[in-house]
């Protein structure tokens, strides 16, 4: 596991920065997109960290039923269409 991925704070910040930077064009990301942030890590290791970020409330899942994507919690259109606004 790379130094970046094994440091939870740094990994969290890297994920948030990555998603925020792209937030003008998209709010939902495929799991494979995390490989751009952690290019030296195995996907199974990335998965463990990313799912912790969901549990911690940094990220949230979005599912069409057939495909699952990740987004920053509270970000994107879908959220506002679920009764909040």
């Amino acid at each position: 596991m790379s130094e970046l991925l094994s440091n939870k704070e740094a990994a969290t910040q890297a994920v948030v920065d990555f998603m925020t930077k792209k937030s003008k064009t998209k709010s939902k990301f495929y799991f494979n997109d995390f490989q751009d942030i952690f290019p030296d890590d195995k996907l199974r290791d990335i998965k463990k960290v990313v799912n912790l970020l969901v549990t911690d409330g940094v990220l949230e899942y979005w599912s069409s039923g057939s495909t699952t994507m990740y987004g920053l919690k509270g970000g994107g259109k879908q959220h506002s269409s679920e009764g909040e606004a």
Binding site: T55, Y61, W62, S63, G65, G71, Q78, H79, E82
Partner: peptide, 9 residues
């Protein structure tokens, strides 16, 4: 509508 963010913890 298509999909959503609902799920269990």
């Amino acid at each position: 509508k298509h999909g959503g963010i609902v799920g269990v913890f």
